[in-house]
Structures are given as C-alpha cells and as structure tokens.
Nucleic acid binder design. Sequence first.
DNA 1: CGATTTACTTCTGCATGCAAAATGTTATTG
DNA 2: CAATAACATTTTGCATGCAGAAGTAAATCG
Lengths: 247, 247
Amino acid sequence: MEDANLNRQPGDATAAASGSPATRIPRATLHDELVGGLRDLIVEGELTPGTRVPERELCTRFGVSRTPLREALKVLASEGLLALLPNRGAQVTGLTTADIDEMFPVMGALEALAGELACARITDEEIAEIRALHYNMVLQYTRRELPEYFRLNQSIHKRILEIAGNATLTRMYAGLAGRARRARYVANMTKARWDQAVEEHEAILDALAQRDGPRLARILKMHLQNKCETVKESLLAESATAPKTDR
Amino acid sequence: MEDANLNRQPGDATAAASGSPATRIPRATLHDELVGGLRDLIVEGELTPGTRVPERELCTRFGVSRTPLREALKVLASEGLLALLPNRGAQVTGLTTADIDEMFPVMGALEALAGELACARITDEEIAEIRALHYNMVLQYTRRELPEYFRLNQSIHKRILEIAGNATLTRMYAGLAGRARRARYVANMTKARWDQAVEEHEAILDALAQRDGPRLARILKMHLQNKCETVKESLLAESATAPKTDR
DNA sequence: CGATTTACTTCTGCATGCAAAATGTTATTG
DNA sequence: CAATAACATTTTGCATGCAGAAGTAAATCG
C-alpha cells in the first residue's frame, strides 16, 4: 500500500540527509509513523535531553511539513518524553534518578499484576515458550552477550504481559518502559547485578511454571526494585563520565 | 448548552500569575485548554461514543482553527478517549465491560501501590485531613447526597495519591480514572453497593491511620475490584435502558 | 572594553488553502 | 422500484502563510 519512504507531494522532500539509524517499521498512518519515528529518535538518544527539538530539521528529515510533525510532538509530550515550553517549542525531557525512583515502583506494581494474571491464564505451551526464551537468555548470559541477553530479557517480560491478556495493562507498561529505556543502562551493568538478575529470572520462570501468582508478583516487584537500583547506578556512572546538562 | 469560546489575544495570554487558588484554572496554553476542554466534553458525555467528532463544529465552539484542535484530538486519541479512523476523523471510544475489566485491575494495582507509599510518608496532619474528608463523606452518605458523596470520595482517593508522592503514579492513575469516569456509574449505584463502599472506606481510613501499608494495599485492591463490579452493573443497566449504537 | 540597546533573523503558534477521500444526493438503469 | 452510476458537497490530512515571540548579531553608550 504505502512506501516506507515518506515523500510528500511538493518539491522539497529532501530524503534522508545524514546517516540516520532510520525507522524501518512503516505504521499505518503518517501520524503513527511520525510518533513512532520520533519516539525512536528520543529513545535512541539522537535527540539530546535539554536541547530544543529542531522542528524544521526533523521536517526535512521525515519529509513532511510542520503540521503533522507538531501533532506528533504534542502526543509525545503527553507521554512525558517531551516538555512543551510556551513559545519555546519542545524539549526532550531528561531522566533524573528521581524520575527513575518514581517510574520503577509503578512498573513493579504493573508487572506484579501482570504476573498474577499470567499465572491464572498461562498454558503449558506458553510456559514452554517462556522456558525456551529463558534458557536462551541464560546462554547469552554465560556468553556475556549483553545485547542479545537484553533483547531476550525484554522478550520474556513482554511475553508475560501478553499472556496476562490485559491490553490496558500492556499499554501502560509499555509507556513507562519506553521512557525508562532511554537510560540504556545495559552498558553499565555490573557483573554482580547481572548475576542477580539471572537468578531472579530463574525464580520468575519457576513461579510461572507452578502458576503461583502471588509468589510471581512478589518476585517481579522485587526484580523491578533491583532493576531500579541498577538503572540508577548506571545513570550516576554515566553522568559522572559525561556530565551533560539534563532537563 | 453553553458557548466555550476562548478568545485569544496576543501578549495577554500569559498565565494569571499571582497565585490565586481558583478552583477553575484556565490552562496556561491554548493546547492544554483544548485538550482539557475536549476531554470534559467526552467525559461529560456531550460527544456520543461511536459518532464522528464534529471537527468544524468544535472549532467554532472553541473559537479556534482546525490546527490546534486537531493537535488536541491526537493527544486524546493517544490517551484512548478517541479512536482515529484513517480518512474518517476521530471517533469517541465507548466503554465496554471488557474495557472496565481491563482498567480496574490496573487501577487497583496502582492504588495499592499508592496506599503503601502513602502509609510510609503520611503525617499526622494528613491523617487528620483524610479523616475529616472521610467523615464528611459519611455524612453525605447518610444524607443520601450522592453527588457530594462522590466528590468527597474522589477527593480521598486523590489525596492518597498525592500523599504517596509519586507524580508518575498520579499521572498514570489519572489517565485511567479519566477514562473510567465516563461510565458515570454513580447514578445507578445500588444501596448495597453504596453501603459496601462506605464500609471499605472505613477500613481504608483505619489502615491509613495505623500506617499499615500492606493492609491498605489489600483493601484498596479489593475496593477497586468491587468498584469494578459496580461500574459494570451500572453499564449493563444503562445499556439495557438506552441501547445505543456500540463503539 | 563590558553592558545595554537596537536591528535583524529564526522559530513558534495558529490560521488558511488545497487535493484527495469520504459522504450525500440525484439521475439512470434493468 | 431496488440497485447502481454519476455528480455535488463535505470532511480529512497535510502544506503553506503570517503575526508575534524568542534568539542573535550589530550598534551605541557608559
């Protein structure tokens, strides 16, 4: 139906200028495309927190006019990824440790709920699926393949959310996780933290396999608490090496 | 029906500075004003679910052009209050019992977290404040003053959220509560449900006063479960009397 | 010289314009 | 007379235009 290339009619649609990681997933509508594309730019860190969002530049980048782009900015602002300064445009919000301290307890509560719901609904096949993901993840852990480990880790959490079968829950969690992901803490995770995370994931798998909802909820809540600490450590370490202006 | 024309004047639009604690605060920017105004129209039920949102009409109503109005529509769509149909504009989303079944467990998890956090932070003065709200609410209950009861009820829940001191949590909860409020179940609440709610609120006050976080969490979770049933009953009753077009 | 004022250049926020799609209405056909 | 076709009208989605605010560079003054 639509080209991944977003060329609009008038003459000036300057396609991808400098090397951008690009957005490969074409959404249904231009609006969704822009929201997704911009969100990626923010999460990937291509737009620096604290700096003004270059509206015109992004227009040429995506090959659209300001109207749809600004619509996307408003949406992202409502998600908390941007801050709208009156007469001063949009600004990427930074992640402070205070933000992390707020977000992770909420994510913990949501994941705990997801765990409980999932235990009540999970099929044997799904348990097997999670188990496969888990041991693949453990494999990457032993190989010290951080990126792949991280990807599988995410998959497991995402799959539990899906199994919980609550779209609202999934959406709320995704919103928070999207914001939290900006911290990109993986790079700074210590060995001890990594060991701990894997251990907790063993317990998660176990509780799931036994369909012990309350236990899984407790484990997940704790798991998120530890993740919170990991992210904060990473954030502090990063701000120590690269003292950027945040917010 | 009243006109909500917001006249804009350049240079004058800056916020009403000197901190006046007015109950009705006009939002700082036009964008926020529109988002809030439209959200009210939806929650109040003035825009019927399932029907197309009359873009042009709303423009004249609010006295703005389509650009800022459409920006607001996109935001409300991202909140789930509207659905965007490609080339067919926006449509107010209806609340099905399935939606309710999804939303209330999430709200329960969030309120439970809020209760735990609040117990750890609440001051004696705040306990006294909640107690005052509570017994005022009970008074309205004995008077069968449903609207005022409902308002105070909301105040208590909101206050607990505030005391929890987690802005992210408050925002997420507010988003869900805003959507749920469209059910306007108050009118259809049975006496039994009302009695039960007041009883549970006694327990809430008690747990708060004792700063028993885990207990408060349990109570709130249960409280929300019951609220979920109440809302669904009301929704079914309403759809039986007024069988409108769904979605 | 540093600080302020002034002139100029973006940039933001909103209004308007326009082509394509959707919708509504009348005409036509079997 | 139901169904379809042809046309007119409205609506949507995006581009563009424009006044005013914010930012920037030059000029003036102490």
